[in-house]
Amino acid sequence: MIAPMDADLLSIRDVSVSFTTESGTAHVLDEISLTLRRGEIMGLVGESGCGKTTLARTILGALPPNARARGTAITFDGRDLLTIDPREAADQIRGRAITFVPQDPFSAFNPLFTIGDQIFELLRWKSPDREAGERGYPRTRRRADHERALALLRRVQLPDIERLLRKYPHEVSGGQRQRLMIAMALLPEPRLVIADEPTTALDVTIQAQILRLLRELAVERGVSVLLTTHDLGVAWEICDRVTVMYAGQALETAPIEAFFRAPALPYTRLLLDSLPSGENPLRGIAGDVPNLVNPPPGCRFHPRCPEVSDVCRASRPPTSEPAPDHLVRCHHPLAVP
């Protein structure tokens, strides 16, 4: 099969990441496997500290220096991001084929430069018109990029754009900043956008607008989105499929409907049950998130799992497919109707 015709845009196979810390080596990601199809929006769901941000950073190739990633492959559009030349990744992949929407739009802008400066800095290096390795910023491209930016900023419903470009980040509201971040993520015409908790820092009322905007734009441009969130409501709003992570392990992937209606993983069940609703009072999951320096053997969720048995402590469960397109790694999956 020819790579570009492949339905999978991104395929992560058995990738582990560890951090060297003062208290020992933390095994933050443990043999993660995940595929993302062209044009789909995948939610990466889990409690904070489960490794979703680390996974996002691993794909971007922007891990901190004390981190080490290994595994079979991260195949993106036919190229392996684990073995790619770092210079090529910085020039051709990061910010170009794969872009990023950060968690906190307040601090992602440098406070000392205007918004326009930062947008055109990005386009200087990441414009779709830029030749590989080009250093300068020729005037024709600059003009084209300017038009491109104006059009997209208008599309994300930002007002008074020429003036906005001359403003400094602190002069702009949070919702507008996140619109800017989304626009900046789309300006290089990427194939994949990684959005790391893109609405966590925003008011609830603005959250929904931003999510809707992100979904519209992604669908309109056929861009895949990998969105991390700890908020199942956010996943429900915009995702096509959801992957649940727990303590650095990816445990279940399912289409959005099946995920909320009939999860196969006991942990997902507990997560859904912990959502506040009319008849359910707020409740959590008993037990604590495990220490990643010395994680529990086998399935890392076993100390807190109601279905636990000896085999869960002894070995990692294999992947099973209880329903079409529904993958789960659990020794005792729940029955899928």
């Binding site: 906190d104 601090s107 290096w125 990441k126």
Partner: peptide, 25 residues
């Protein structure tokens, strides 16, 4: 800072980040 991470994650050259954006701050 987050803005340094953002620019790094967006693949803006290191030299540019250091000598233009970091240095001013």
């Amino acid at each position: 800072s987050n803005f340094v991470f953002y620019q790094t994650a967006m693949g803006i050259p290191r030299r540019r980040i250091v000598w233009k954006y970091l240095l001013r701050a």
